[in-house]
């Protein structure tokens, strides 16, 4: 436990100091990595912890981003105040969508989530209810402000995004060490045994979906605030694929793994930008190699440790 706090604090300190040596371009790259990290952490609840394949996570991200953009541009509510609202709408959307499909297994669920992702994207393009602005999207989302201090530069957003990512890491870590977090893992391991041990499997699948979606919705809010323009193309199937790859490549169910995955998948293509089109080839080849040689991901989740009272030697056979 102490060791984990040290690693967390150390990583946080290094990240906080990075802007000192980076220019605005690279800070913006780090901002993108941060948003993907939050998204992938939220997807990790669904895919990594609960074992439900979801390739439509961008839909929830989009619902959050559009909630922020629509309410901000029409009602002029400060965008960061909308953070819980975006979480709520994305969570509610997930609840409505997931309720009828949650009993589907593995690949079937996966296909349905792809469908949901596409429906949302196409609905946005078609200007559903006349409020999404069609293919052009919505522009003019006002700058967020924290305690009256407006955020404009990449550096200011850097702190907003990474503080949110840090809080996410802490909350999700605590969740892992709880009744709810364990219940999600039992589901992933053996659904029949979980139900037979007294776990309401349908309910916990929904909890995973709704909580993961709500967090993606909040990431959407931050994205809308950062970009000030959002359009359907930012929430394409490819975004869902990226988030999914981050989770699988980094290590399903492992918070440090997902963070590293976010750095590699969103960061590496930037570093190799000079190789132009070849970079995606290298990127793809690296992913293929990973899946052959290290299927559990870069930093797989280790077993949880509990503080146990020392062993009493009597009354316990070897």
């Amino acid at each position: 436990m102490k060791q984990k706090i040290v690693i967390f604090a150390g990583t946080g300190a290094i990240l906080a100091a990075l802007p000192l040596v980076l220019n605005a371009y690279w800070i913006d790259v780090l901002n993108n990595i941060g948003i993907y990290a939050i998204l992938a952490l939220s997807l990790n609840l669904i895919v990594g912890h609960t074992g439900l394949f979801n390739l439509g996570h961008a839909a929830f991200y989009a619902v959050g981003a559009y909630t922020a953009a629509i309410l901000n541009t029409t009602c002029h509510i400060p965008v960061l105040w909308l953070l819980p609202v975006c979480g709520f709408t994305a969570g509610l959307f997930a609840l409505l969508v997931a309720r009828p499909i949650i009993h589907l297994r593995g690949d079937y669920l996966c296909i349905v989530t792809i469908g949901v992702g596409e429906i949302v994207r196409i609905a946005l393009i078609n200007d559903v209810f006349g409020i999404t602005g069609g293919a052009n999207g919505i522009f003019g989302v006002s700058r967020p402000s924290v305690f009256g201090f407006a955020l404009r530069t990449p550096l200011q957003f850097f702190y907003l995004i990474w503080i949110f990512a840090g809080v996410t890491v802490i909350l999700f870590h605590l969740l892992e060490y709880s009744r709810v977090g364990r219940a999600l893992n039992y589901l992933r391991e053996d659904e029949v045994a979980a139900e037979g041990s007294g776990i309401n499997t349908a309910r916990y699948k929904l909890i995973a979906f709704v909580l993961g979606a709500a967090w993606a919705g909040m990431a959407g809010n931050i994205y809308a605030a950062k970009m000030s323009i959002i359009s359907p193309e930012s929430f394409s199937f490819w975004e869902s694929v990226l988030m999914f790859s981050i989770v699988i490549l980094g290590g399903s169910g492992s918070i440090p793994g997902v963070l590293i995955g976010a750095f590699l998948i969103t960061g590496l293509p930037e570093i190799f930008r000079q190789f132009a089109s070849a970079r995606m080839l290298i990127f793809g080849a690296a992913m293929v190699a990973m899946m052959i040689f290290r299927t559990q991901g870069l930093l797989p989740a280790g077993p949880r440790k509990y503080r146990l009272p020392p062993l009493a030697s009597e009354g316990d056979k070897a």
Partner: peptide, 28 residues
């Protein structure tokens, strides 16, 4: 039918689940 990749203790903690009540917020 055990939860293969979890510890022995966590397998048994699964049984305790139905006698516990903390929700998502309390857990987070």
């Amino acid at each position: 039918r055990l939860f293969q990749n979890l510890s022995v203790l966590e397998n048994v903690l699964a049984g305790c689940h139905c006698r516990m009540s903390s929700g998502v917020l309390g857990s987070m």
